[in-house]
Design a protein around this nucleic acid. Structure first.
Lengths: 334, 334
DNA sequence: CCACTATTTGGAAACGATTCCAAAATTGTC
DNA sequence: GACAATTTTGGAATCGTTTCCAAATAGTGG
């Protein structure tokens, strides 16, 4: 069942049918109606391979999501996909571990199919920096800043992680905390976490309080186990901490468990804060103070920027969305 | 840069180049080496649209994941993708809400691209039952049973949810619980949850204990908020429950919060059990007793079955994997 | 060295769409 | 009613592969 069959059945030429399929002008109402009817009757779907072949290869927009565990990405993807769909653009999502080799392979694979655009959610920009050189289509880094990466076709959508972390730390400081520990951000370094750490440290030092990275900070991977172990190590080193700031809710969740396992209570013995406002922080016992990113806004902004890049040839843009401090029960005033 | 350019540059015909690309026999070592060199030099990648068009359209295997929040699926997808990759099959994943319309649209979209095979993770089989009629490629339902659905090309990989729920309930009963409440399974019914519910109820009634669905069971959506509300309603109705069995860890997590909000403690005042052994249950305070599915085994089995269906034309298979009761702190003996 | 088979090669046809240009039909004007 | 301008239509050429068949080449045994 191809376009020629439809044309024959409808009593028109393939050109006319093609024009109907693509909503192009110069087709009589009569022809359009008749052809649509026949297409409907036959359950005809244009062959996308033939189509993309002729149209100089245009597979849909490809999205890469690094870190399946992070629920924030699910919340971003929904509105993103919706916005894209409104512009009739399809989205193919690939979920990956944030591992250099895996990321490279996945990008190479999708790149070979010449998508119209690409989206990167999470993940360490360094891992795919070299892959970017091979990408010739507009791309958006979501949840990471690309402004200083210097790739011409790479836009970005993110919040000001540094400011958000500063804001959260100031909240801790205002509640009287002076000995604050920080956990999160992989040992190999990670852009987002690095920014959050910088913001937090800046806020603390701005009050004239000393913060010794080697002593008061503990890196860890982005999952519960990482947070658990990091909190253990940090508390082993520092018996006098009154608050721990985890650079992600998932990490905070692991840390919470570690704190409890030491026989301490949150927030009575120690205060705890996270980042991202996932369901973890909302439902944990106690509920965890955190920073909320507007996932819907981020998702829509990413789609909007990508569409502008793709259709109108707009230059790369770098959008910085708002954040919000969510005060819950896990932080107490001293 | 197309196959003809390569052929010309290498001094061979397009047929020979095509044979090299597809690792086919009847090519001299000399020709193969020369052509590979030229391809390498030019950074040539065969156009996949042209390729799939000619090969009667064969896009990669398509996977649909219903329920982004469920971390179990992430754990299944990893080994699944690995096994597929070993057979040189690529995987395109689509994440969806478990909503009838959305699921239908996504399946239709992927189906039009004629994938080699399809995978369904989670989701309510009823939602895509009608879509199945249009699917002409082998498919595997992961985490759901298709044995009784009667689709010829639909295999399935799952655990015996009924037996697992029975096992967990027996565990509760052995610990002296007699008034057990159950939450989970959407109001509109859901295959997996229905089986779990059936197993649980059977175990309870087998002991001669009455279980009144209308009183002792409360349906809810598969997320924390659902578990929270369901637990509230259930406890409002039944002040005498000594244990709650949530048909999913996520639900258990919400329920835990609800219990605490009523001023009760787990497991002192009430015991709690979940299902799936996600990180929630592992790190929650208290740690939650649950059923573990072997995600790696399920993922690999799904890939193996699909590959057999695709390559060897094997008939649909229905594999039932093992489960394991994980005893933690949330259940106490009365 | 020939006849015959097996291997290697070249290239036309096909896959199913889009795109263009020319032809046909319609509309408008005087 | 004739002619120009415009809209609508048909269909060949094209995109970059694979697949087939025929042709060329290499290999073998007598």
């Amino acid at each position: 069942m191809n376009i020629r069959d439809i044309a024959a059945k409808a009593g028109y030429g393939v050109g006319t049918v093609s024009r109907v399929i693509n909503d192009q002008p110069n087709v009589s109402e009569q022809a359009r109606a008749r052809i649509l009817t026949v297409m409907e009757e036959c359950g005809y779907e244009p062959n996308s391979n033939a189509r993309y072949l002729k149209m100089q290869s245009q597979t849909p927009v490809a999205a890469f999501v690094m870190g399946v565990g992070n629920r924030l990405f699910g919340d971003i993807l929904g509105p993103l996909q919706t916005t894209l769909a409104e512009a009739n653009e399809d989205l193919v999502v690939t979920y990956l571990d944030d591992d250099a080799d895996e990321v490279r392979a996945a990008i190479a694979y999708q790149n070979a199919r010449h998508p119209k655009g690409m989206l990167f959610l999470g993940g360490e920009p360094r891992y795919f920096a070299e892959a970017f050189h091979e990408i010739e289509v507009p791309s958006v880094l979501v949840t990471g800043s690309a402004a200083d990466l210097g790739f011409e076709r790479l836009s970005s959508v993110t919040i000001d992680n540094e400011a958000a972390a500063r804001c959260l730390c100031e909240h801790l400081l205002e509640h009287g905390h002076r000995r604050i520990g920080i956990i999160g951000g992989s040992k190999t370094g990670n852009q987002t976490s690095t920014l959050r750490l910088a913001g937090a440290v800046a806020a603390i030092r701005a009050r004239g309080i000393s913060f010794d990275i080697a002593r008061d900070y503990e890196p860890c991977d982005f999952h519960e186990a990482g947070g658990y172990e990091a909190a253990q190590r940090l508390l082993d080193r520092n018996g006098d901490l009154t608050a721990i700031f985890a650079l992600g809710d998932v990490i905070a969740f692991g840390a919470l468990r570690a704190i409890v396992d030491r026989g301490l209570r949150v927030p009575r013995d120690i205060s705890l804060a996270g980042f991202d406002d996932t369901s973890f922080s909302q439902y944990a016992v106690p509920r965890i103070t955190t920073i909320r990113q507007n996932a819907e806004q981020l998702g829509r902004a990413a789609a909007r920027i990508l569409l502008a890049n793709m259709h109108d040839g707009a230059p790369a843009a770098h959008e910085v969305g708002p954040f919000e401090l969510i005060e819950r029960e896990s932080v107490r005033a001293l």
